Amino acid sequence: MPIQTTIAYEEIDNLLLDPENPRLGRQTSGKKLSQEELLNEMAQWKVDELAISFLENGGFWTQEALICIKGPKPGKFTVVEGNRRLSALMRLRDAFDGNPASPKWKELVEGRHPSKGLFKQIPYLLAPSRESVQAFLGFRHVTGIEPWAPSEKAKFIANMVEQGMTYDEVRRKIGSTKEAVRRNYVAHKLYLQIEEQANIPRENFKDRFSVLFLSLRTQGVQQFLHIDLNLPPEKIKEGVPRKHQKALQDFAIWLFGDDKKLPLFSDSRQVDKFGKVLESADAVSYLRRSPIPNFEVAIRMAGGDLPESIERVHEAADKVEEVLRVAHHHAKNLKLKQAATRLGRSTKQLLWVLPARNRSRGPAVSIGSIR
């Protein structure tokens, strides 16, 4: 049964904040919190910005009607889409009633009067169940115009999978890709495991969940954690096998940091190099034994800087070839000669270093062999 298309109206006292809202975060979502406790949790969502808009524009926007389901008590409705809007109205009503949540809310309503029906005629659309709203919420907040934080998206996707939906069914529901759905599910399961197994401060997770998600695309991370993303959800539900919990704990500290160490790297663009590091036994051994491991050192030990080195040499060769086309026009220029001499010395040194480490692979290339 689909969401109703006819807008109905309800007063604020009959509308309830949703304790299962993914935006609340894993530590709060689903807990038995009172409406006042939920409202306090939602204070960090910048609801005052919405409140100002309601006051400036004469009320609640009908085109942004809430989506509700019936219950949990007769005559009450739980808001499954629009909790931020409802919490803004609740804060406004409290401020107009002389119970502002803070001086900011007191100042916000000073000299103002609520528009007619602001708290008595709130537009909403009725949905028959939470499940009937999943496709809409998935598109709007996972792939659409009002995205949740990465960990919130993953939790929403994981809930759908654990309700029995396949990766492909979830993909179609939310308008994503099968690979993204799969990685979000696995990332969420790892996140739950890390919370239980590693001593990581919760605040460290907030801004780093996307790095966890991205790292799962690398073969090195999958091998190190002994997880197979190609397994069906029921086979991967437990995440990292018990006998590899030490690997999970090390991985968590390197990725998120703890109360003693910073994360191994801060730029999410480094996840591919991180994967290469975890493929190297020598690099992993270095990370484990070093009190303060250095990511660049680990990359070098893993040979992860080789592709970049090769690319730089190619770039240098390209630039030299460009200069060769015009160098004869400036044959007597002293600065150009000095730059070329420097280049020659560096190239000779590079060619000397490479054969010294690869004598078993063939004869050394001499500087005089370059044509």
Results as ranks from 00 to 15, higher is better:
Q219K: 15
F274W: 06
E195T: 08
G303W: 12
E110R: 12
S366G: 00
Q63H: 06
R371C: 12
F295S: 04
H244V: 11
K260Y: 02
E81R: 04
P150W: 00
S268W: 02
L214M: 13
D272H: 03
P147W: 04
D228K: 12
A327Y: 00
P72H: 07
C68F: 01
H141A: 03
A51Q: 04
N40C: 00
F136A: 01
L92T: 15
M165T: 02
V109Q: 10
H188E: 09
N83E: 11
G164V: 00
R171I: 10
I12H: 07
K116G: 01
S266R: 08
P103R: 01
V326L: 09
P19T: 07
M160I: 05
V211C: 02
N294V: 08
L39I: 03
M90N: 07
R183K: 03
K235M: 14
R242V: 04
E179N: 08
L255N: 06
G164D: 04
D282F: 13
E64I: 00
H141Q: 03
S268G: 05
A187V: 01
V186D: 00
E234V: 01
A43C: 03
E234G: 00
F139W: 02
S215P: 12
H244M: 15
G59D: 09
E279C: 12
L24A: 10
V297L: 03
W105S: 04
L343F: 11
G71S: 11
K260T: 09
A158G: 05
R23A: 09
K332H: 09
V186N: 03
H330C: 13
V271N: 11
R357T: 07
P201H: 02
A281V: 08
Q163C: 03
L231V: 05
W148D: 13
Q222T: 05
I253Y: 01
I3W: 07
K276I: 01
R345Q: 14
P147V: 14
Q35V: 04
A252E: 11
